[in-house]
Amino acid sequence: MKQPSARGPVSELVLGIITGTGPAGAALAGLSDAVDEALESTPDLLFDDDLQLTLFCLYELHYSGIDGASTDWEWNPSLIGARGKIAAAMEQRLRREVTLSELPAATSEAVAAELFRITGEAGGPSMSRFVAKEATDEQLREFLINKSIYQLKEADPHTFAIPRIAGRAKAALVEIQADEYGGGRPARMHSALFAKTLRELDLDDTYGAYLDTTPAITLASNNLMSLFGLSRRLRGAAVGHLAAYEMTSSQPNRLYSRGFKRHGYSEDAREYFDEHVEADAVHEQIAARDMAGGLVEAEPELLGDVLFGVAAALYVDELMTVQIMDAWAGGRTSLLHSGAASTV
């Protein structure tokens, strides 16, 4: 991934360390204190540009890497320590915020019923209805840019959970992921379909191309998936998070497709959304009953974390939707730089 620009002292420190632009020794020694200080002074970690970008870059070392950063940094103890502090603060922030109602029985049937109930009641403004009926061409582009941070590596964070679970839940997760990765056909990978949509709108389909203009809350939505995916302890939350995504996708994607059709975009541009209508109608059943329900039946102690993963996914993505739609309602861009959604 292209090196992003720093957004504050901590991300400047980390990017300097991993790209070798500063003396690593002193910077590494000061990193822990710098993270502590930033965590103490931030009004809200979920909206903190410096800390969310730092976390995103530290996680990215485990995905595509960062241009100019040696692969040796991936498991550097000081960087892992800094990552752990920010991740722990983010988990605490969400555990405080997200309240779980009474837990269902630890059976596949009860878990599936509860997941369908929670995802069916998810509140907040509807991005999909807005996109279908009202969004301008510029807003469609911003919508894609905000999505591009995740969708160009769609499915990757949850894949980390595969070796951490077993049996029925594992088979279900793999069945979903195999479909996400195109069932063996590279052009059908969901990330490839999304890249095609970007190209159809003359946007840049390079992974991370729009990172610098992406607001903190969009990075937080991405970091949440890595936080869950990269921790065995949080495997229940990773599974819950994926279930929440699969179970809130079919109908919104139908509406997204309608919005792009309204603006005259081709079937090629809309294929990503059309594919998700059909795919996620399959995935949501497998995700609720076999993956989440199967995991809870095998490891009943994970029930609370599965539901936490669902609730955290819905909560953070609602914050993201609110921020983007508030910006649009006020006649502003949802991105950090106006004009960023212009064509390449």
Binding site: F116, S250, Q251, R254, V277, E278, D280, A281, V282
Partner: peptide, 13 residues
């Protein structure tokens, strides 16, 4: 469903 014979999630609505 608007995608028959496939499901498109409308049963929930």
């Amino acid at each position: 469903s608007g995608l028959k014979p496939y499901c498109d999630g409308t049963h929930k609505q």
